[in-house]
Amino acid sequence: TGEEYIAVGDSTAQQVGDLTFKKGEILLVIEKKPDGWWIAKDAKGNEGLVPRTYLEPYS
Rank of each mutant, 00 (worst) to 15 (best):
T1K: 13
T1G: 12
G2E: 08
G2L: 11
E3Y: 09
E3K: 07
E3V: 09
E3P: 06
E4I: 14
E4P: 14
E4K: 14
E4Y: 15
Y5A: 02
I6C: 07
I6P: 02
I6F: 06
A7N: 01
A7P: 01
A7K: 01
A7R: 01
A7W: 07
V8H: 04
V8A: 06
V8M: 10
V8N: 09
V8Y: 04
G9C: 15
G9T: 15
G9E: 15
G9K: 15
D10W: 04
D10T: 07
D10I: 03
S11P: 04
S11N: 12
S11D: 03
S11E: 03
S11W: 15
T12W: 11
T12Q: 12
T12H: 13
A13G: 13
A13S: 14
A13R: 15
Q14A: 12
Q14R: 14
Q14L: 13
Q15G: 14
Q15D: 11
Q15Y: 10
Q15F: 11
V16T: 11
V16N: 10
V16H: 11
G17I: 05
G17Q: 06
G17Y: 05
D18N: 14
D18Y: 15
D18L: 14
D18W: 15
L19T: 01
L19N: 01
L19G: 00
L19D: 01
T20V: 12
T20M: 09
T20N: 10
T20G: 09
T20W: 07
F21R: 01
F21D: 00
F21M: 03
K22V: 09
K22S: 09
K22H: 09
K22L: 09
K23G: 04
K23Q: 07
G24N: 05
E25A: 09
E25D: 15
E25N: 06
I26P: 03
I26M: 06
L27P: 00
L28F: 11
V29F: 00
V29P: 00
V29L: 04
V29S: 00
V29I: 11
I30W: 03
E31C: 13
E31L: 13
E31D: 10
E31G: 08
E31R: 08
K32V: 04
K32I: 05
K32E: 04
K32H: 04
K32G: 02
K33I: 06
K33C: 14
K33P: 07
P34W: 07
P34N: 12
D35V: 02
D35C: 07
D35P: 01
D35A: 03
G36K: 03
G36P: 03
G36H: 04
W37E: 06
W37T: 10
W37Q: 09
W37L: 10
W37R: 12
W37S: 10
W38E: 01
W38T: 01
I39K: 08
I39Q: 05
A40S: 03
A40W: 02
K41A: 06
K41R: 15
K41G: 02
K41W: 05
D42Y: 00
K44V: 08
K44I: 08
K44F: 14
K44D: 11
K44N: 13
G45I: 00
G45K: 02
G45W: 02
N46I: 08
N46R: 08
N46A: 07
N46D: 06
E47R: 09
E47L: 14
E47A: 08
E47S: 10
G48L: 03
G48R: 02
G48W: 04
G48I: 03
G48V: 03
G48Q: 02
L49F: 12
V50Q: 00
V50E: 00
V50F: 01
V50A: 06
P51R: 12
P51D: 15
R52N: 13
R52V: 10
R52I: 09
Y54R: 10
Y54H: 14
Y54K: 15
L55T: 01
L55I: 08
L55W: 01
L55Y: 01
E56I: 11
E56K: 08
E56W: 06
P57E: 09
P57T: 05
P57D: 05
P57Q: 07
P57H: 06
P57K: 10
Y58L: 13
Y58A: 09
Y58E: 05
Y58V: 12
S59V: 13
S59G: 12
S59K: 12
